[in-house]
Amino acid sequence: MSIPPPVAADLIHERVKAVLGDRVIAANSLRNYLTIEIAATDLLVVATALRDDPELRFNFFGDVTAVHWPGESQELEVVYHLRSIPANRRIRVKTRIAAHESVESMAQVWPGADWPEREVYDLMGVNFVNHPDLRRILMDEDYEYHPLRKDFPREGL
């Protein structure tokens, strides 16, 4: 099994649109990186579709992280980076939530999302529902803050 040549970006783009339909709120392919934005409630459906579609097969969970935009109504932006090894393509899935809301855990779709999601929970305070074991991972277990939020000072707590 050698590395497959990357499937044309347009084809992947079209296929993602066809599979997800109007679940995609916004899409772009800046810097040759397909990015889609979806609603947090659609996350599990979208993830399963992206993984199981025979042409896309986004089987590799690359990474999850979050960006904090204080002052906005949906202040946390959760960003997933998925990879399709069979199609040799990547996709970025973004979703916005308010600080008190939660997102479905991707560990239900890709077991590899376990630790990365724990890290995001720990440092950013994103709550993942249905995660097998959502605990702090880098900080101490009785630590009270989420240090990567923008309102957390770099020094002098």
Binding site: M1, N59, G62, W110, P111, G112, P116
Partner: peptide, 22 residues
């Protein structure tokens, strides 16, 4: 792949994958 392993841990399982080539 499902566990997100990469590098030698992934290749050791027979998956030919290297970002230098991909």
């Amino acid at each position: 792949i499902a566990m997100g392993l990469s590098g030698a841990c992934l290749r050791g399982s027979g998956v030919e994958w290297d970002i230098r080539k991909a």
